[in-house]
Amino acid sequence: MHDAEQLRRVAVKVSSEAAGLLRDMACSEDLGRVITGETTVADKKAEDYIVDMLRSELESVQVISEEAGGVASRASDAPIALVDPLDGSTNYLSCITWCSVSIAFADPRSGEVLAGSVAPVYSGMPVSFSRGGGCYHGGVRFGKPGIRGSIISVYVDEPGAVEAVAGAIGRLKGLRRGFKVRSLGSAALELAYTALGYIAVFVDLRARLRNIDVAAAVGAIRECGGVVMDGRGYPLRIGVWSVERVGSVVASLDETLARIAVEGGSG
């Protein structure tokens, strides 16, 4: 079993190179063609590239991915790679430059997420972490950054949820002037920027997010000293042995802000 820092470096390398591949292919009409279900040519090409790279970088690895699925063994010593080859695919296929590649590594026996990286497809450096080894923006390790941005990132579907979260937004704005609400289209990347402190609060009440979507970014937020909760205010649980939904997600470097968002969203 590789140590967490080794796995972080592999995650950064593979996610960054896959992001480069997607960037080089961007805005090609063929990439949006559906292969099966919701899988497009872009998704499949990126995933195949990532799986090949992971298997060349590591002696053995168990891959759980968006397109291929998979089930990992708890008895194996091979780390589990949770792969989202293209988060923000609607943006990507629309030539909108906010999308990312996300890779996390987990211990198959404990289920602990050990390391991960979220790499922007276009501008920006990867956000990565290793458990106990700190958070990185590109190649620079940083401590607890604190909130530097004024964005509240919000995803809701149902009218009732919109009304509920509106109250929370009002309370948040009462605490800190200048907050602005955005929904940018790549949850993994927005969570990564929450870890950096550029997004103050992340709220997704659609109950659609899966472990492969968020494992790397959630690990980074926690390693940076932040909190990630489910829609009821409990620490978010992330299973790692197969693709599964994690439900609603609320995150911030400031626990008070996260709890206000949870109370509003469940109200």
Score class of each variant (00 low, 15 high):
104 A>G: 02
118 V>K: 01
170 G>R: 14
194 T>M: 04
53 M>L: 14
68 A>Y: 00
244 E>W: 05
12 V>D: 06
8 R>D: 01
46 A>W: 12
184 L>N: 07
70 G>S: 00
87 D>V: 09
77 D>I: 08
70 G>H: 02
243 V>A: 04
259 R>L: 15
181 V>K: 09
6 Q>T: 07
195 A>S: 07
69 G>N: 07
45 K>A: 15
202 F>L: 03
33 R>N: 10
246 V>L: 09
78 A>E: 07
239 G>T: 11
82 L>N: 00
61 V>M: 02
139 G>A: 04
76 S>C: 05
238 I>D: 04
77 D>C: 08
208 R>G: 06
136 Y>D: 00
93 L>W: 14
88 G>K: 04
220 A>P: 09
152 I>N: 09
61 V>P: 02
224 C>F: 11
12 V>T: 10
179 F>Y: 15
172 L>Q: 14
159 P>K: 13
140 V>H: 01
220 A>E: 12
91 N>M: 10
135 C>I: 07
96 I>N: 09
19 A>E: 05
128 S>W: 02
114 L>T: 03
191 L>E: 02
141 R>Y: 00
256 T>F: 09
69 G>I: 00
71 V>L: 01
56 S>V: 07
41 V>T: 10
150 S>E: 11
65 S>F: 00
169 I>S: 15
177 R>D: 14
89 S>C: 14
211 N>H: 10
199 I>F: 02
53 M>W: 05
13 K>G: 12
90 T>F: 14
33 R>Y: 09
172 L>C: 11
86 L>S: 05
236 L>N: 04
220 A>N: 12
264 G>R: 13
184 L>V: 09
183 S>N: 14
246 V>D: 07
123 S>M: 12
165 V>R: 12
177 R>T: 13
242 S>Y: 10
11 A>P: 06
18 A>W: 05
236 L>E: 05
153 S>G: 11
189 L>Q: 01
67 E>L: 03
131 R>G: 00
35 I>V: 11
112 E>D: 12
171 R>A: 15
40 T>A: 07
200 A>G: 04
69 G>K: 01
220 A>V: 08
149 G>E: 06
127 V>H: 03
108 P>C: 07
256 T>W: 09
78 A>G: 08
9 R>E: 06
258 A>Y: 12
259 R>Q: 15
178 G>N: 07
97 T>N: 12
130 S>A: 09
12 V>C: 04
160 G>H: 11
112 E>K: 05
75 A>L: 08
112 E>T: 06
2 H>F: 02
119 A>S: 15
81 A>P: 06
4 A>Q: 05
56 S>C: 11
32 G>P: 01
215 A>W: 00
28 S>M: 12
45 K>Y: 14
33 R>G: 11
170 G>V: 13
183 S>Q: 13
200 A>F: 05
81 A>M: 04
185 G>P: 05
40 T>V: 10
125 M>R: 10
116 G>L: 02
197 G>S: 07
237 R>V: 15
118 V>W: 03
252 S>D: 09
141 R>N: 03
77 D>M: 06
257 L>D: 13
159 P>Q: 11
180 K>E: 15
97 T>V: 08
92 Y>T: 11
58 L>T: 00
203 V>I: 15
144 K>E: 06
208 R>H: 08
165 V>S: 14
